[in-house]
Design a protein around this nucleic acid. Sequence first.
DNA 1: CGATACATGTAACCGGTTACATGATTTT
DNA 2: AAAATCATGTAACCGGTTACATGTATCG
Lengths: 192, 192
Amino acid sequence: MAKSELTTLEYALLGLVSTGPMSGYDVHKVFATTPLAHFSSSPGAIYPALRRLERRGLLQAALDRTTETRPRRVFSLTPDGEAALDIWLRQSVTREELVSTTGASILRFSLMGGRLSDTEVVAYLQGWRAELEAYVAELRARWTTTEAQAQMPLHAKLALENGLQGFEGEVRWIDDAIEQLRRRGRKAQARR
Amino acid sequence: MAKSELTTLEYALLGLVSTGPMSGYDVHKVFATTPLAHFSSSPGAIYPALRRLERRGLLQAALDRTTETRPRRVFSLTPDGEAALDIWLRQSVTREELVSTTGASILRFSLMGGRLSDTEVVAYLQGWRAELEAYVAELRARWTTTEAQAQMPLHAKLALENGLQGFEGEVRWIDDAIEQLRRRGRKAQARR
DNA sequence: CGATACATGTAACCGGTTACATGATTTT
DNA sequence: AAAATCATGTAACCGGTTACATGTATCG
């Protein structure tokens, strides 16, 4: 297993490949045409990252010579790769992640489908929610007191409000997501 | 002037120093205790960045020996630095920025106070808004058609919705910000 | 006085960006 | 056959992270 601290990009690659074997170019195409673009980027990032993951034994490449003369390297997850992905998917959202690590939380959520139970997913969302609310409360307490407001220029006030509204929007989204997951759960229950 | 393509961190530093001369540690403290944390980071990023800006002639350091034996390097903007900052502040929000460059748009907005006229600021916000709406429309057209929805797993759907709601929240914030800027404008008018 | 916090850095490592290289396949 | 596009990379550069180094003020 080793110390599995990977880049967000690398986790995104693991997650994408987990949905089915893919060549580097396939991956590149998905990143270029979906909101995954958020994480990467150019072949110059993707190919080396795939190599790294292969070297660490998290991905394996199968040479596909069937149709073409130039072999395509088709990647799939190794058992270690599956394990590393699952461990990462089970990490809860931290304060640090709220503030800095761009989009890791939502990336993890979007890759959980099918790999984690709905119970786990809901727990993840609730943990995320709690972290968000704590952070918002702290920011509000710290920066939206009347004294702080008085000496804060309008632009700073508005920028802060921008951040706060964003976080509160996330909270609402989480509530909605939990609701939808539950609804699906009940439907599945009913079909039995 | 040269080709002024700076890091987001470097622009954040320029902007912060533009509010008044500061030592590296002062800067560090602000980054550590405000939502600016989003951009940096550790002394290991800040000090080298300040040096770079100094080397490029955008910042100048004054040695302050008055109170202490160890001199503090107090940074302030050079005319070139002011110019570089102003140019950057006048850049409008691009699609690429919406998707990737984390927080550059809001950073720019928050630094505009006092440096740009309210008219310019409002124009900036309107440009941002237009870019957001165009992007949201495109995403919706592309991904929320009934066929696309049908074959999209629930998690993917929810993650997409997360992004869309975030963007729509930004739009609402922009409308509110414009309104508040206008209100202030009218008040200032009345006081004359 | 010793320990802790203040204050300013430096150096190694590593990943992402940019730009280029190369060959194969398809289009004009 | 030439041009464009598909597909897979490589190499240089550069900035951020982590961890360490060092010295100064402050507090018990």
